[in-house]
């Protein structure tokens, strides 16, 4: 005798329905799958032993409303957060990618805005990678933008705050990079492509070429600023908690360090400082 006749537990019913709703194909395919059939015999589901039919819809039609809405809802969220990747690989491929991603990495967070947190890493593991390494880097940029947007609140230091550091204190001073700052090192000119897409201009060719980018929030908006390799290294060292002396050792004297710090302070990239002795 099937469980539907015996009276299923709430746990069995919820696990079964969750499986059917999340199934990447259809509700009808889902109810016939081995794990679903172990809970409720497919024939009994189809004849209404679990879900009632009405005069317009069979039990599987009614289940399909939820099955279809599940992927559509998650697709909409991913399409907003990873619009660049969608543009890059095309609508059909993006749909397949999202279906695969949410099947393997379903949301486990109360906030739907967190859905894409594992997407770039998941995309990088696919073989072949849809859109190649360029798409993975683009996904990393788009995730960095959402992370900067949602980062904890902070109060940026001003240039005046930095001017309180005495010359003798600079070497051992540690600057806290504000929590919205996302530092990205790419093997392609990702930001140039992304900006062209945003501006609805022809996209530049996807050739290789290292680039470095800082994504951060200022005045409640997310900004992106390209960095040189040396500036990236210094900022990354500060973000890792190193003192200025150590961080500046990575600058190799190649760039105008003073200008960097003026610009970074003006952009509010630092939120605290611990003066050295």
């Amino acid at each position: 005798m099937s469980r539907s006749r015996q009276g299923a537990s709430l746990r069995q019913l919820q696990q079964w329905l969750a499986f059917v709703v999340q199934h990447p194909r259809t509700a009808d395919v889902a109810i016939a799958a081995k794990s679903a059939a172990a809970a409720f015999a497919p024939a009994e589901v189809r004849t209404g032993a679990v879900v009632r039919p009405n005069d317009r819809m069979s039990p599987t039609d009614r289940l399909q409303v939820y099955n279809g809405a599940y992927l559509a809802r998650l697709f909409d969220v991913m399409a907003i957060d990873f619009g660049g990747v969608r543009e890059l690989i095309g609508e059909k491929a993006f749909h397949r990618v999202v279906a695969g991603y949410v099947h393997e990495c379903p949301s486990r967070h109360p906030n739907l805005n967190q859905l894409g947190q594992r997407f770039p890493d998941w995309l990088a593991r696919q073989r072949p990678v849809p859109g190649g390494a360029f798409a993975v880097e683009l996904a990393r940029l788009e995730l960095a933008i959402t992370r900067a947007f949602d980062a904890p609140a902070f109060t940026p230091l001003t240039t005046t705050d930095l001017q309180t550091i005495a010359p003798g204190q600079w070497a051992k001073t540690r600057l806290t990079v504000n929590p919205s700052v996302q530092l990205l090192a790419f093997r392609h000119p990702i930001d140039a492509w992304f900006q062209a897409w945003k501006d609805e201009r022809p996209r530049p060719p996807r050739r290789r070429g290292a680039s470095w980018l800082c994504v951060y929030r200022k005045d409640w908006r997310v900004w992106r600023v390209p960095l040189s390799a040396a500036a990236f290294a210094v900022l990354a060292a500060l973000q890792a908690g190193h003192a200025l002396e150590q961080a500046l050792g990575l600058a190799e004297g190649a760039d105008p360090v003073g200008t960097w710090f003026q610009n970074w302070a003006a952009d509010g990239l630092f939120s605290a400082l611990r003066k050295g002795r």
Partner: peptide
């Protein structure tokens, strides 16, 4: 959701 997964429905 169930078993730690949020279906957002």
């Amino acid at each position: 959701g169930v078993q730690g997964t949020n279906l957002h429905d």
